[in-house]
């Protein structure tokens, strides 16, 4: 019995140490089995016109897919693929557009009014998000006042339902629509006439573009009363991985290329509509 307790204690200490190591700022495990690591240096906060802002939210244990990562959990929930995916995307933004964005990555919370200083926010694994009434109202106001939310990296029927449960708290009467190729959001910067499912890095080992039962990519959106898209939804896809793995020889370029074009179009749309 004592041995069992000792073994359990050692295992627990090891687990905690590993967890803490993984949570050190800027470090991220970069691909199982490839033995590479990525270090992100945030740098000074340079005043910018555009801040790449990731939404930090409280995850729900019961959603089943986030393995209980809470607000400050690493590797899942709100911070999935952070910071490399975001940083790669920001580099592409700086290189390919005229948007002023020298500032490093930014994380915003729904428990602060400073979210209103950043009219663009990106959220992942939104099947795990939960809101208090106050948080839901803040996001509701944010969107109706002119903010733009892009959501990514959730798959299948259950994830969709969990995402929508949160979305209904924010926008109870919102109508979700499938975006057509002709929609302005796909032509504001690049003319994107052909879209396909953008898989996560799982594709490298399995060749599967889908996860769970999310076989078909859903390019969806919620508009305001004037027809402006305020929530862009990338369901059954993982654009974040496509940015993050863009420099990997194993991850097909066509997915990363489309993912970059999509997000740059979304940002450009958010800044012009």
């Amino acid at each position: 019995m004592k041995v069992a307790r000792l073994v359990f204690a050692v295992f627990l200490m090891f687990s905690l140490s590993l967890g803490l190591a993984l949570q050190r700022e800027g470090y991220q495990d970069y691909g199982q089995g490839y033995g590479r690591r990525y270090y992100y240096e945030p740098g000074p906060n340079v005043p910018s016109e555009f801040y790449w802002s990731r939404l930090r939210y409280t995850s729900d244990y019961a959603s089943g897919s986030s393995y209980g990562f809470h607000r400050y959990g690493g590797g899942g929930g709100w911070s999935r693929d952070y910071p490399k995916a975001d940083n790669d995307c920001l580099i592409a933004l700086r290189r390919l557009t005229h948007i002023n964005s020298p500032s490093p990555l930014n994380v915003v919370d729904l428990d602060s009014d400073h979210i209103f200083d950043y009219p663009w926010i990106y959220a992942v694994q939104v099947n795990t998000w939960t809101f208090t009434e106050e948080e839901a109202k803040r996001l509701h106001d944010y969107l109706l006042k002119g903010g733009f939310l892009m959501v990514d990296d959730f798959h299948g029927t259950d994830d969709w339902e969990h995402f929508m449960a949160g979305m209904r708290m924010v926008l109870p009467d919102a109508t979700v629509e499938d975006l057509k190729d002709a929609d302005e959001i796909y032509h504001v910067l690049y003319d994107i006439n052909e879209k396909f499912q953008i898989p996560s890095e799982v594709y490298v080992n399995t060749g599967r573009t889908y996860e769970k039962d999310g076989y078909v990519p859903k390019w969806r959106a919620i508009r305001n009363d004037h027809g402006r898209i305020m929530v862009a939804i990338c369901a059954n896809m993982h654009l974040g991985d496509a940015w993050e793995w863009a420099d990997s020889p194993q991850y097909p370029e066509k997915f990363s290329g489309l993912a970059f074009r999509i997000v740059l179009n979304y940002i450009m749309y958010a800044m012009t509509h």
Binding site: E49, F50, H98, I99, R228, M271
Partner: peptide
């Protein structure tokens, strides 16, 4: 407008 910026969007809005 010489660059994409929020002022442009919100004036249009």
């Amino acid at each position: 407008e010489g660059e994409p910026r929020w002022e442009y969007k919100f004036i249009r809005q």
